[in-house]
Design a protein around this nucleic acid. Structure first.
Length: 651
DNA sequence: GAGTAGAGCGCC
DNA sequence: AAAGGGCGCTCTACTC
């Protein structure tokens, strides 16, 4: 659909409830009968007039099964008609509704159907990063927010709706409300659809193809090896305990370590350590003495207790966030799965983000829901430590294997293209190794010699590691000091400030096209007021280029084209592999920015790796974006049976 | 008790 | 003068 055509769309929306009110937002509870649809409405428009094409309210007098049969009938009609007539199903935050349809038994139809999302279109039109710290609250893009802003006469139409009251009157009201949702969804989706330029629209439509995949992934969830999780939890508890015992005599307790204020007092007043760094609040202007990782790293040279503090805090943090959270979510969900919920267009660069919890809000007065409580449905998947011990917790469902594809050197390659730097471009050709090249430049050795010895010679390995660090860190105007700290603290690479200076200097001399790209990109963005990815997706950059936010705005100009294109590339990849995955009985399960993970039946894994690789290495960039990358864009594959134990697939 | 600010930190 | 970017989660401190 390139222009909005009422004869090619169907609006729909589902309302849900459950054994507890908050279960309404947990579609996997539908499978166990603990959540259900209370109202389903689909509508079409002919000559501008709304036609109610299907709908049902949940009648609590009927047994749950019979209610479901009724609802299923309408859902099935809607889905099959949409497929037969080539209609797109339009909703607001529609991955949720799609997940409900899958839970009601229509996985096959949902995976074939086309979806569109009003929220998604609005974001594509409107997205701009927040530069003012004081205004860091994100703009909401809910349907209610759209109505309040653009249809103020109808603002507040959702008030007094009770999603969980099963009386006939309340259900009738709910159903009428659902119908309004459909009407407003059409107005909103149509409005934003028409506002978008052709390339923006195309990018949005490609992104929208991920909706059923994300719906299915959110619904299915991930199996966890609870034994591994338990062992990890114990190990981290022991690590913490060891440090706690060693530090106890110096006044360290868990409470102190977890509190920056108390820890600062202990270290700087009681122990008399020097204050190496201060934090200044951008809002209040208050300064506090930093106790962060970098400071502890530096202090460890004069007092070994600083290292112990760091280890102690790290063990405590990691245990809560990456071990206990998984176990807790498994227990809470009651389906032996953890359900990190992916949000499409979670960031303005179009990455998916994952949330670990569901906020129980509203309906606080109703039994069973405490307002403000965070329900532990998943974990912060996109932040999971890159460590075998942690990742091994995530396993596969019986009969499946895990297949990972990641876009090889994604940001390096897009930077090569964006900057047009000859050296970078040539290093993206088959057989070259950019990190060895940079390592050779930094270490004053011969590039080919380094490549030849990089597997065997420890010194060459060290140089290549430094080259990789330089390539990845210097791409976006990093400062010498930050570069040094980052090398030392995060990568354990010893580095003094002079060496950091040299690294930055050599980077710019190696790739002279990159600093030129920075300038060009900033100037272009000043002119246009927005930045565009290679796919045509845009983000607005408006503000005072002479003011204090100018640096941030410039960084967005530089950064967005690269990261945003990475996001577009991932969505294109998802769209292309969707049908193939279905055909082998597999499904997309999560993403990690430049990596796509799928569950595939064991006996199909090998073949799926080969076929998927072929699809991904030949993505239809020209057709999708009207742009052909001048260099190869290869994908690497790994497979295995747990996230912590994936083996490279050789082709 | 609820809500927010801030620090710190995990990933790519 | 100096400044990689993008996020979400967890904890404490503080305010009302």
């Amino acid at each position: 659909m390139r222009v909005w055509d009422d004869s090619k769309v169907t609006m729909f929306d589902v309302e849900t409830s459950g054994a507890k009110p908050e279960y309404a937002l947990q579609p996997w509870r539908i499978l166990s009968g603990d959540a259900w649809v209370t109202s389903f409405v689909s509508m079409e428009w002919v000559d501008g007039k709304a036609i109610y094409t299907g709908g049902v309210t949940h009648d609590d007098n009927l047994p749950v099964d019979e209610g479901r049969i009724l609802c299923r009938r309408f859902m099935k009609d809607m889905l099959t008609m949409a497929l037969d007539e080539g209609r797109t199903l339009v909703g607001w935050h529609v991955a949720f509704d799609a997940a409900v349809c899958i839970a009601y038994g229509f996985e096959k139809l949902v995976m074939q159907a086309k979806f569109l999302d009003g929220l998604l279109l609005w974001k594509h039109f409107d997205m701009e990063p927040e530069y003012e710290m004081a205004a860091h609250k994100k703009r909401p893009y809910g349907l209610k927010d759209f109505v309040t802003e653009y249809l103020p006469a109808h603002a507040g139409y959702e008030e007094e709706i009770d999603f969980h009251d099963s009386s006939p009157e309340a259900r009738a009201k709910l159903h009428a409300y659902n119908e309004k949702d459909n009407r407003f969804t059409r107005i909103g989706a149509r409005h934003w659809f028409k506002q978008l330029g052709p390339r923006q629209l195309k990018a949005a439509l490609i992104e929208a193809e991920s909706i059923p995949m994300v719906a299915l992934a959110n619904l299915r969830g991930l199996p966890i090896d609870t034994l591994v999780a338990h062992e990890l939890s114990c190990k981290l508890a022991n690590d913490a305990k060891r440090q706690a015992e060693a530090l106890a005599e110096f006044g360290v307790t868990e409470k102190v370590v977890r509190s920056p204020v108390q820890l600062a007092k202990l270290m700087y007043e009681d122990w008399g350590l020097p204050v190496l760094k201060e934090n200044k609040s951008k809002i209040t202007g208050n300064t506090t003495r930093s106790t962060d990782k970098e400071v502890l790293h530096e202090l460890a040279f004069i007092d070994p207790r600083a290292k112990q503090l760091r280890d102690y805090r790290e063990a405590l943090n990691n245990r809560t966030k990456f071990a206990e959270a998984l176990v807790k979510s498994i227990a809470y969900n009651e389906d032996e799965r953890t359900h990190p919920q992916a949000r499409i267009f979670g960031t303005y660069t179009s990455r998916l983000t994952y949330s670990s919890g569901q906020k129980a809000k509203g309906a606080g007065k109703r039994e069973g829901t405490v307002k403000g409580v965070n329900l532990p449905i998943g974990f912060a998947l996109h932040q999971m430590k890159n460590d075998k011990l942690f990742r091994a917790q995530v396993i596969v469902p019986p009969g499946y294997g895990l297949l990972e594809f990641d876009a090889s050197g994604q940001e390096y390659r897009w930077m090569a293209i964006a900057s047009g730097d000859e050296t970078m471009l040539s290093l993206c050709e088959p057989g070259e190794d950019p990190h060895s090249y940079m390592g050779a430049r930094l270490g004053h050795v011969d590039y080919r010699e380094l490549v030849r010895l990089k597997e065997t010679d420890p010194e060459m390995q060290r140089l290549r590691k430094g080259g990789k660090f330089g390539n990845l860190s210097c791409q976006y105007r990093i400062g010498d000091k930050t570069l040094m700290v980052r090398a030392r603290v995060q990568h354990n690479i010893p580095m003094e400030i002079n060496e950091a200076k040299t690294t930055n200097f050599i980077y710019k001399r190696t790739y002279p096209g990159v600093p030129k790209y920075w300038d060009r990109q900033i100037n272009e963005t000043k002119q246009l007021g927005y930045v565009e990815t290679f796919a045509g997706r845009r983000v607005q950059v408006v503000g005072d280029w002479g003011g204090r936010m100018a640096w941030s705005m410039g960084s967005t100009a530089i950064n967005y084209k690269i990261q945003g294109t990475g996001g577009d590339q991932k969505y294109l990849a998802m769209a292309v592999i969707k049908d193939y995955l279905v055909s082998v009985g597999g499904y997309f399960i999560w993403d990690l920015h430049d990596g796509l993970y799928s569950f595939v039946p064991v006996q199909k894994m090998q073949q799926a790796a080969i076929d998927t690789k072929r699809l991904l290495d030949n993505l239809p960039y020209k057709k999708a974006w009207g742009f052909v990358p001048p260099i190869p864009m290869p994908w690497d594959a790994k497979m295995g049976f747990s996230w912590g134990d994936l083996k490279e697939v050789k082709f």
